[in-house]
Design a protein around this nucleic acid. Structure first.
Lengths: 198, 198
DNA sequence: ATTCATACTATACGCAGGTTTAGGTTAGGG
DNA sequence: CCCTAACCTAAACCTGCGTATAGTATGAAT
């Protein structure tokens, strides 16, 4: 929950988080400015100052890249549910964060989903597991993907077929979903890992 | 596996790791130098260059704090095998490290084991999974434990019975092991989590 | 014997980057 | 209607920090 932040401030914070997980170190003021097309570092600096004042960021004065995103909000956002109708996955929806080694699962932007139901037990993915996904809008055949289908997020095997896409579960009791090209299917990411707390 | 590194280089790498986890951002060359009492940044820079050449560190040239520690170094040691006859689990035996949020699985001292075989498929633990364990020498009935039995480490359900201990697998094809009190059974830790890389 | 890698001191160059000063525009609240 | 906050440009200041040059010392390897 990013309460009390303006849109721009939330965007800046999100960028800093993404930069951190992709690069392994925080961005400079100018790198933030470049991301948003600011012609002066001052603009980025202002937003970062505001984030500090509101307690979302800590910075050691004078030192380059000496940033801390507070509120243990780092690395991998854990998305419980996805708001319907959003054009993009907003990080603001994240309830919690997982602090994992960002290089452990490879490169890219990641998020986590808590698994509900037993549609993937065949792959030894059980209820309550946290599935780690790399954000991407396409997938290879056979990969496990998180898809947004009619305002619901599900985890399925992705299989393109002649006249659309089949979404298969790893549970014989759950029947395959057939998606036509005209249906609103969006791939949120592909599974790259799993974390279980017992 | 910190082989191929000199003592100093290993110390520098460890410091960079510690700095990273405490501060949230990597140190500068001069901060490394200060830590070791070097009177010239050149000394630290040399060691960091050596670490880069050996593949333990990546650095963007010219940019301050733009460091990446490669090769998963920290927090949870991943134990592939356990040397026989050792009185304690020496952390030096670790081949690799997992960098997880240390508070994610609770408190204590942790290590990880790579799962071989399918004796725990009933619990949805499959080959190649990394099982996270809290180091402790005892366990409650029913908990999943890693035990050292005749120079071999196995993952089993722990069940004390009248005349000893039963170690049960989560696979009907694998038969239960009965351990008498006089046998050399040592519990290494209890399972607290699981990480899977797909 | 003499090359090499390790491990440092001392000094300095130059630019990346945090920060400041000095503005401008827009929207909202009292 | 003023006042503040948000949001930005432009230009400059100055120091932190990566890096280079020039050495010294040691020990292992060839």
């Amino acid at each position: 929950m990013t309460r009390g932040l303006t849109d721009r401030q939330a965007q800046v914070l999100e960028f800093i988080n993404n930069f951190l997980s992709r690069q392994g170190y925080p961005p400079t003021v100018r790198e933030v400015a470049a991301q948003f097309g600011f012609r002066s570092p001052r603009a980025a600096h202002d937003h970062m100052k505001a984030l500090q004042k509101k307690g979302f960021l800590r910075a050691a004065p004078g030192l380059p890249r000496a940033l801390n995103v507070v509120g243990h909000a780092k690395h991998i956002p854990l998305l419980g549910r996805i708001a319907a109708g959003q054009p993009m996955l907003a990080v603001e929806e994240a309830d919690e964060y997982l602090d994992l080694d960002p290089t452990f699962f490879g490169h890219g932007s990641f998020f986590a989903l808590s698994v509900r139901g037993d549609s993937m037990v065949g792959d030894h993915i059980q209820e309550g597991d946290l599935v780690i996904l790399r954000s991407q809008a396409d997938a290879f055949s056979g990969e496990v993907v998180a898809v947004l289908l009619e305002d619901e997020v599900t985890l399925k095997h992705f299989h393109p077929v002649a006249d659309g896409v089949e979404l298969r579960a790893a549970n014989p009791l759950v029947k395959t979903i057939k998606v036509r090209p005209e249906d609103s299917l969006r791939i949120l990411g592909v599974m790259v890992g799993l974390v279980r707390k017992v």
